[in-house]
């Protein structure tokens, strides 16, 4: 074997400047920063624009007042908040069974062809303009409820019809996300249960559903915050009458409906009424944020780890 003089190994200390890499990092970082800044900016606007309001209306009156009557400078948030929550709860009562039911059907029972047809149609419902749903509530749901004797025939606006259409709106959200969660449960787990002589129903309810629970919860909570922030359909269907009630047959006015009414009305910029919509907007924001925090905690608690 001949000894050969090898070339001197290249030194390590020649760090290169790569402008493309730097540029990409900068661009992507800017994109991420912008979305954070926008969120912060919105919160800041809510606080800033509403700040004058807190000077003229007492916090206690605002949070405990059961009447919203700006003409007399009575600003109690409870009727608005309760209306938003009432409609979200009604929507959930409609959407959770239908959403989870269709998710189980699609993931456990339907064959591939059915799923390929049904799922996009279901998701189409999520893209329905909400003003259309509002008219659907006024033109179809409320008359049907009147026909069934649930709503007095001389009363057009009610929380129930609004809750039902918002429920329809969030069905696809629950169905689609829950179906993803069900399908993420490993096939091996289903086979293990089938191999023990379990029926489809038992596999779906006792194995797949619990294993996917965290995903299902996440879908419900996401749908809830969508429902509580829904505006057009509830403004049309539920009315414009602040009403502190838990009775779904009565007309109510949600936080979002008040914001619409005030901002399209004559309230001058900087007036107390104008400032009040930022205050209630902040309340809505906090409620939605609390729901999301609760959701994260729930998901963490119920998470099943499978490998």
């Amino acid at each position: 074997m001949t000894t050969q003089q090898l070339p001197e190994p290249a030194g390590l200390r020649a760090r290169r400047f790569r402008p493309a890499e730097q540029g990409v990092v900068l661009l992507l970082g800017a994109a991420a920063t912008i979305s954070v800044l926008i969120t912060v900016g919105i919160v800041f606007t809510l606080i800033e624009e509403g700040s004058g309001f807190w000077g003229s209306v007492s916090l206690v009156d605002f949070f405990t007042g059961t009447e919203w009557f700006p003409v007399d400078r009575v600003y109690g948030v409870l009727p608005l908040l309760s209306a938003s929550v009432l409609i979200a709860v009604l929507a959930a009562l409609v959407a959770v069974p239908i959403g989870i039911g269709s998710a189980i059907y699609l993931s456990e029972y339907a064959d591939e062809r059915t799923r390929r047809v049904v799922k996009p149609i279901l998701e189409l419902l999520a893209g329905m303009p909400t003003i259309v749903l509002g008219f659907f509530a006024l033109e179809s749901v409320t008359p049907a409820l009147q026909g069934a004797g649930i709503i007095p025939s001389d009363q057009l606006f009610n929380a129930l019809a609004a809750g039902i259409v918002v429920g329809l709106l969030i069905v696809p959200l629950i169905a689609s996300l829950s179906e993803d969660a069900f399908r993420a449960v490993p096939a091996a787990m289903r086979e293990g249960a089938y191999g023990l002589g379990a029926t489809k129903r038992v596999v779906a309810t006792r194995i797949v559903f619990p294993a996917a629970l965290s995903g299902v919860m996440a879908s419900i909570v996401l749908a809830l915050s969508r429902a509580i922030g829904e505006t057009m359909a509830v403004t049309l269907a539920a009315g414009t009458q602040p009403n502190f009630t838990a009775d779904p047959t009565e007309p109510v006015q949600t936080i979002t409906a008040v914001i619409v009414a005030v901002s399209k009305g004559e309230a001058t910029r900087g007036s107390e009424l104008y400032q009040s919509i930022f205050a209630i907007g902040l309340v809505l924001f906090v409620v939605t944020m609390l729901i999301n925090i609760a959701a994260t905690a729930l998901v963490r608690r119920f998470r099943t780890v499978y490998h």
């Binding site: 490993p186 787990m189 293990g192 191999g195 194995i207 619990p210 780890v305």
Partner: peptide, 11 residues
């Protein structure tokens, strides 16, 4: 009964 390739206990 059946035992599978990868252990698949229920969670």
């Amino acid at each position: 009964g059946m035992v599978f390739q990868k252990p698949n206990p229920f969670p």
